[in-house]
Computed example of a mutant assay.
Amino acid sequence: MMRKLANVEEFNTLAATESVVFMFTAGWCPDCRFIDPIMPDVEAKFSGYTFVSVDRDEFIDLCIEKDIYGIPSFLAYKDGSEAGRFVSKDRKTQDEIESFITNLSA
């Protein structure tokens, strides 16, 4: 089960210290609900990453700071640096999400 981001300090700590994929989402977002059922499979396939859900409405300033202007979107960090982003307002498929994460380790 994906954990939820508690605060901006946690975001900064995880980004600096872990291989982490942040999923930006919102309760009202139908495309976010569409991918919810597939995310446990994605998390299981990429167990080397910590997956963290970020509520866009709760962390709007963080979204602005990180240029996250569509949801669902993914932002990945590795070794303290941004490793990649899959940011758009389009509906994402499991294949697209897995391809994004696979290419992070390339």
Rank of each mutant, 00 (worst) to 15 (best):
A16Y: 00
I35R: 10
V20T: 05
K66F: 10
K92P: 01
M2L: 15
I68P: 05
A44R: 14
W28S: 14
A26V: 11
G80E: 05
A76W: 01
D36W: 12
S73I: 06
E18D: 11
T17M: 01
P40R: 11
F24Q: 11
T93A: 01
Y77V: 03
R3K: 09
D90A: 14
F24V: 09
V87R: 10
A83R: 02
I71R: 09
I60W: 10
E10C: 01
F34S: 14
M1K: 09
A76K: 02
M1C: 09
D36F: 13
D41C: 10
K45I: 00
A16K: 03
F74G: 05
G27D: 12
R3Y: 01
V42A: 06
I35G: 08
F100I: 00
D95L: 12
T102Y: 07
C29F: 13
D67I: 12
A15H: 03
R85Q: 14
D61C: 07
F24G: 02
E82D: 04
M39F: 07
I60Y: 15
Q94T: 13
S88A: 13
T13E: 10
S47F: 00
E43I: 04
F74K: 07
A83D: 03
A44N: 11
M2H: 09
Y77M: 02
S81I: 11
F46V: 06
L104S: 04
S99L: 09
L14G: 02
S19E: 08
N103E: 12
I68L: 04
D90Q: 15
E98R: 02
F59S: 02
S105P: 13
K45Y: 05
L14C: 03
G80Y: 05
A44G: 12
F74L: 10
F22I: 02
A15Y: 00
M2Y: 10
D61L: 06
T93R: 00
R33E: 15
A106F: 15
E58F: 06
F46G: 09
E9F: 01
R56S: 11
C32P: 08
F51M: 03
E10H: 02
A106R: 15
R3P: 00
M23T: 01
T102Q: 14
M39G: 09
K4V: 12
P30E: 15
S81E: 14
S73F: 09
S81K: 14
V21M: 07
R85C: 12
L75H: 03
G70E: 10
K4A: 14
S73Q: 10
D79S: 11
P72D: 06
G70W: 08
V42D: 05
V21C: 07
N103I: 05
F100R: 03
K4M: 13
D95S: 12
A26F: 09
T17Q: 07
R91S: 12
F59R: 07
I38Y: 08
T13H: 08
V8E: 09
A15I: 01
Q94W: 02
F24S: 08
R85V: 09
A83M: 00
V42H: 07
M39S: 04
D61W: 04
R56H: 15
E18C: 09
E58Q: 15
T50G: 01
S47K: 04
I60G: 10
I35A: 11
D41S: 12
N103A: 07
K66P: 01
T17S: 08
K66A: 08
F59L: 05
S53L: 10
W28F: 13
T25R: 14
E58M: 13
T25W: 14
R56M: 08
L75G: 07
K92D: 06
S99I: 06
R56D: 10
